[in-house]
Design a protein around this nucleic acid. Sequence first.
DNA 1: GTTAGTAGTTACCCAAAGGTAAGCCCTTAC
DNA 2: GTAAGGGCTTACCTTTGGGTAACTACTAAC
Lengths: 125, 125
Amino acid sequence: MKIIKNEPLPGKAECAGSLKNVLDALYVLNGKWKLALILSLVQSSKRFNEIQHEIAGISSKVLAKELKDLELNDFIERKVYPTTPVTIIYEATGYSRTLKSVLGELSAWGEQHREKIKQSMRKQS
Amino acid sequence: MKIIKNEPLPGKAECAGSLKNVLDALYVLNGKWKLALILSLVQSSKRFNEIQHEIAGISSKVLAKELKDLELNDFIERKVYPTTPVTIIYEATGYSRTLKSVLGELSAWGEQHREKIKQSMRKQS
DNA sequence: GTTAGTAGTTACCCAAAGGTAAGCCCTTAC
DNA sequence: GTAAGGGCTTACCTTTGGGTAACTACTAAC
């Protein structure tokens, strides 16, 4: 593990600032599904049922609501192709891609977290 | 339209993996307050009322619940000092600090997101 | 004795999130 | 005609989150 010795002691203003930033970020990214949905669509554009299949456990109702919400917030676009029957593709916008490093870090952390949980389960049994 | 189920897309397993990682991470970090609380305590250890004052809008009930939850999940420690009256200090554990890069990215993103929102407000008015 | 501060707990209540199940409209396939 | 997707919507219900306010136990200060 990398240990950074010269932690820049942040000033109070900076602390409060980053706290506010995080709160603001969480405000739009709230809920159980949003970040996962964005990640899924950044990886590749998909149709409704494909998303529902990939994100195990999400119901169609919640998925529809979240997609609308993400579209309103400019994270995704809903494209309708006039095939027969119409094909509806959800794709991530450029703005979603500004979340890439957040998602990268979160994924890395999630992975090691799962490892840690497995370790502590082993110890208990 | 025919559905091809076995697309040999390169990195598909990897995609599904990071999706799972993100979902796992969100599972422990859910809610409006957890990441902000962790950030606050990573910046410096604090007492109950200090936290409540810093995180504007959190009620004592919710704060107490979140602190318990974070303690259970090994993100923070509750230290009691036998002064008169007793002093109770909450501090971040080393495990909280593994979230530093996540929090850093999230804060950076939150900041530019706020800027973006301000821009679009200006345009509308 | 009263007030104030610390660190919460408890009771009550409301709203939002989210799950389940069914249905709907459209079209192609059998 | 009937079934089988695809892309949702609707109704219904439960769970969770979270807000308010009151209250506790302890101590120190006025």
